[in-house]
Design a protein around this nucleic acid. Sequence first.
RNA 1: GGCGCUAUCGUCUAGGGGUUAGGACGGAAGAUUCUCAAUCUUCAAACCCGGGUUCGAUUCCCGGUAGCGCUACCA
Length: 522
Amino acid sequence: MTVSRSSSVRPRVRFAPSPTGFLHVGSARTFIFNWLYARRTGGTMILRLDDTDVERNTDASVTSIFEGLKWLGLSWDEEYKQSERGALHRQMAEAILEKGLAYRDFTPAHTGDSERSGAQGTWLFNPGMRELSREASDRRAAAGELFALRFRVPRDGGQVVRFTDAVYGEQMKAGADIEDFALLRSDGMPTYHLASCADDADLCISHIIRGQDHLTNTFKHVLILEAAGYTPPQFAHLPLLVAPDGTKLSKRRHGPVVSVTTYRDAGFLPEAFINFLCLLGWSPKDDRTKMSQQELIEAFSLEGINRANAVVNFKESDVGRALLPATAESSTSSVIPNGREAAVRNLLSTPEDTFDPKALWLNAEHIRGLAIEDLSQRLLPIVREAGFNITPEKMVRITPLIRERITLLRDVLTVADFFFVEQLPPYDPAELIPQKGDAALALKVLQKAQAVLANVEFKHDPLDQALRAAAQEIGVKAGQMFQPIRVAVCGRKNAPPLFETLEVLGKETTLARINLATQKLH
RNA sequence: GGCGCUAUCGUCUAGGGGUUAGGACGGAAGAUUCUCAAUCUUCAAACCCGGGUUCGAUUCCCGGUAGCGCUACCA
């Protein structure tokens, strides 16, 4: 007989990471899908740390998970720690044992190897233990002999375990294909399967949305839940996120691109990153790609989830892999604005060609959609951290000039650098020479500019008129006029539009830089 | 080895018994502005293979192949 579940009408979903590593992009997506489902349905989002593996849990991992979630800006309503709920787990194990649906296995634990799962075929149980009489079992346990508690999987009469997955549909598996999995380890600690089921039942989880790697585990979970008298919740398994080579994402193999904090440190907008992750294995089924959080909540449904694994299309670069760990971890330290060292480091740590191009595009897209004030506020800390003492007022004036020119927030450092420094870093004077011109022409242009700019108001329109008129006066094309000036004030050919730039830079800086440029031409 | 899941452009995906198989990223070409970017236009690019069902399969069914997952006293 089964006890009917809590009568709560609102869905209750959970994200249950085990703190054995940094927050992984796949885990982040699982969190997001759960969160979207909860918000979409008015349900409750629960964060549960599945930390029953004391050997492998680390505080650093817990920190990384919270850090990552904090950055994503998605909240949860309830929080639990599995390690504090041991009594509940043991209670469930006890109940299952009492019903005769589990048995003690006194076979010593296997050490490390997994040769059992090799060519020998399916291992189902350790000989002799399943059949042990309850009396003998109790006696040995009372004598202090160590044992693992195993589930007595029903195998007689061709029994079948089944459940319906919201994504993968009807699932069934013969009991004859399920091994007698452990519930309790010989040290008394619950296994993942037991703890997870006990907590899901106790917390009245209504929908379990998790990675597809648990799809076959679900048969065991259904077994546990039913043995303990609960009706299994709704399951929805998510296709896995894989690397371009098709293998699962791992930090060891693929480097920091699989860690959420890497995206934060590289200058992704959390809303863009969430948007990107949502499009991996889920579709709104219309042609939208750029979506706000609100739009995602409104469009999200379990039916929109795909069944095939999705590739996170990052570039596997040895250089990036070798260098990113150091730079990603030390990204909070200041970046030296100029100099060869900074240039080299910038080049090597530039993640631009490492990340999935679509993630990059979405980020740029979200940046472009931000209000100037908003973007400016997000940019300022990055600029300050890099050692530039820029005021919020100046940042607000710079922001519109770069909004369409940055992909990652950190690009502000390379795109707007000339606004930040007092002295321009050295540049090649040959850059000053315009199309179809020579050094003499460049000099002539710059000298004319100096003269004209000294007496013009530094606003877009007056600058526009004055410089165009000047070009005509000395008989050069507008482009030929503008380029030397641009290089003189920006230190390079590619930069934001000239008049706006000059306006923000101001007369004093502009004239000083042009003056310096004329000296270079001599 | 056993069991399970999956298969549409390079990638993310839409679609579905009859379609010019749609969109997005990326790529290419062009337009445009003072450069760059943004924007706009255009182009190239896909239904894993073999059977079956059917008047007709990329779509449904079966088989194969490939990939992935599980097969721990990890989660």
